[in-house]
Design a binder for these strands. Sequence first.
DNA 1: GACCCGGATGGCACTCAGTGCGCTCCAAGG
DNA 2: CCTTGGAGCGCACTGAGTGCCATCCGGGTC
Lengths: 232, 232
Amino acid sequence: MSSKPPMRDALVAAAFQLFLERGYEQTTIDDIVALAGVGRRSFFRYFPSKEDVVFPDHERCLADMTAFLSSGGDEHEPVRRVCDAARLVLRMYNENPTFSVQRYRLTKKVPGLRAYELSVVWRYERALADYLRGRFAGRPDGTLQADVIAAAVVAAHNNALRSWLRSDGQRDAGAEVDHALGYVQSAFGHPPVRPVGELQEQRPEDVVVVVSRRGAPMWRVVQEIEAAFGRD
Amino acid sequence: MSSKPPMRDALVAAAFQLFLERGYEQTTIDDIVALAGVGRRSFFRYFPSKEDVVFPDHERCLADMTAFLSSGGDEHEPVRRVCDAARLVLRMYNENPTFSVQRYRLTKKVPGLRAYELSVVWRYERALADYLRGRFAGRPDGTLQADVIAAAVVAAHNNALRSWLRSDGQRDAGAEVDHALGYVQSAFGHPPVRPVGELQEQRPEDVVVVVSRRGAPMWRVVQEIEAAFGRD
DNA sequence: GACCCGGATGGCACTCAGTGCGCTCCAAGG
DNA sequence: CCTTGGAGCGCACTGAGTGCCATCCGGGTC
């Protein structure tokens, strides 16, 4: 399906070889194209800027994410769905752990690459926030909640991802991200608010008790109360 | 206290005049220094890059924020303190509303400026997260919670800030930010989460809501509450 | 006043990222 | 065979950012 341009891969390989052995800023585009044996102009045909060669597959991953969010499914648990979308990014990192660890070490010390990574992450966050804004349309503070939850999901994902990268890919990336995203879901999503008692088969004059541990947000409690009264 | 270099202000004024009348990318450093009547080299003495002239006071604001967080006070409500720190940024924007609105319009359409703004925002977020990490040291998921809460605070602040900027500074910036930060505090902090009824003096993390449909007898309500609390 | 000194400024040349344009080469297809 | 279009290449150009040195100027010293 996707044609593999060998030149692109050759440029990435040459670039990383030089970046690792002499540093990012000490490597010029001419150095890269000389090592790859291609013309200078061809570099900019595959990568719009020098930074892009460090993140060669994020464009594809971002497209995957928007496609995943566009395809419906699990409509009434948007937070969970957004967490699943974030896991796509982890999957990409996990496809090539050694490459990811090398890149992490590079971005950690080069300010320009950190800044570029921020703009990449920002686009992921925007994709999540836009999805949530659509799901939360009509709620009183819909866009606010969407933006905050998207930021929290991204922050949790990145926290776990970096912890995994710092371990040189030794730890279990999936477990760490699941744990981190679980924290966000417990703060914003359904799980932590569990009805005590037989909510399912409640008789009309029954008493419903909702207990929330771990500081669930007030609006979630209100939402649960409304659900208990059968309003939706 | 703070010496006022007139040259710096002249450069900012000249730069914005040109940015607004002919666009950011269409304006070169030479254009700016020619209009300001200074040498080209002096520009880079005051601003390390062309982007920096668009955000002339963020460096000072960031220093204010770290100073505010370093000076102790309100030790046992870290989330509230971090929200107060975020309000410092709003205050800076609010000191010069017309300038802030102009800059907002500029950064909205120039991708390079958006990317630079991200790196600025990231430094604020790091300052907040580092403070929270210190406060949460020892907690099981301390760094995770610190990162997530910092991201949520920044997202909420920016959501309100942008809403205010989009209104050309007409709406009440303080009120909008207070509302947005209140949402975050209600999700992560103790105080705003208040149980319905008279159950305030619980463990801070526990929220108990009792809903009684169709007038159940009082003893049933008490029974359910006791069951909920005795459950573990 | 002569002298000196340090900081602020200006001028200049240089590197390097990124762009526009026109050229060649080659493979597909008539 | 010729045509055509895309992929690669070479080259010249713009503009950001840097290093270096000359200059200017205000203040302090003798």
